[in-house]
């Protein structure tokens, strides 16, 4: 990891904080970047009792085995990415702790634990038209009967590879995107949002909006 005072998130050059509003008012789409979120790739066989027990000990919850679901706690949770693969997402700068805990608990198992925090960033979208904006560029069926809070999916948005995670009914979505595609994806989403009204919010406002609506569940 680079020195914290030197690092730049993939969207820093857009100076989003300078455009951020305290109250998004009537904007149909409210967006912001979640910077420096901890992301750890976990691979292993959930049918192996030693792996399952070790992962649960290290994380405090069992990684979900149902495809395209998310499980965990408010400040650390795991996205199902494959039958033997998860993305453990946590508060900024907790990746070293998570990696160390998983490696210690999985010593001797056929497993892999890799810090991938800097590979992608997260664009959070919320608001009455967040679902419409995602549907414009992504083939996933986002109808509430097919997709909802606690669901995730890997797909494409305007051809860029993304991981989509719905957090609540508002709806609030996190879009994980490769850092080299972040600028492109942000600009596409902002353009797609114009007809609904678009507002940028800083992370504390984003978190406050989320907590006001859903005191439970993941941040």
């Amino acid at each position: 990891m680079v020195e914290p005072y030197l690092r730049q998130s993939p969207l820093d050059h857009l100076s989003l904080d300078a455009r951020a509003v305290g109250d998004p008012g009537g904007a149909g789409v409210v967006a912001g970047e979640r910077r420096f979120i901890a992301k750890v790739s976990l691979r292993g066989d959930p049918a192996d009792p030693a792996f399952a027990a070790g992962a649960k000990t290290a994380l405090g919850f069992a990684p979900p085995v149902a495809p395209n679901t998310v499980d965990g706690k408010r400040d650390r949770y795991a996205l199902w990415l494959g039958p033997d693969e998860w993305l453990v997402v946590g508060a900024p700068d907790t990746q070293d702790k998570t990696v160390a805990a998983l490696r210690a608990a999985l010593a001797g198992c056929h497993a892999a634990v890799t810090d991938v925090s800097e590979g992608r960033t997260i664009i959070r979208l919320t608001g009455a038209h967040a679902r419409d904006v995602i549907a414009k560029g992504c083939p996933i069926d986002l109808h509430p009967r097919a997709f909802g809070p606690g669901r995730c999916a890997q797909s494409r948005y305007a051809r860029a590879l993304v991981i989509l995670h719905q957090l609540d009914e508002a709806p609030t979505f996190d879009l994980h995107v490769d850092r080299s595609f972040a600028d492109y994806l942000w600009r596409v989403i902002e353009d797609a949002s114009l007809e609904y009204g678009f507002a940028v919010v800083a992370e504390p406002v984003m978190a406050a909006l989320k907590r006001r609506r859903t005191p439970q569940g993941q941040d």
């Binding site: 495809p67 395209n68 494959g82 039958p83 083939p139 996933i140 999916a153 797909s155 494409r156």
Partner: peptide
């Protein structure tokens, strides 16, 4: 077999 019906572009 894991994710269910998805668009061909994936």
């Amino acid at each position: 077999p894991w994710c269910g019906p998805r668009d061909e572009v994936e």
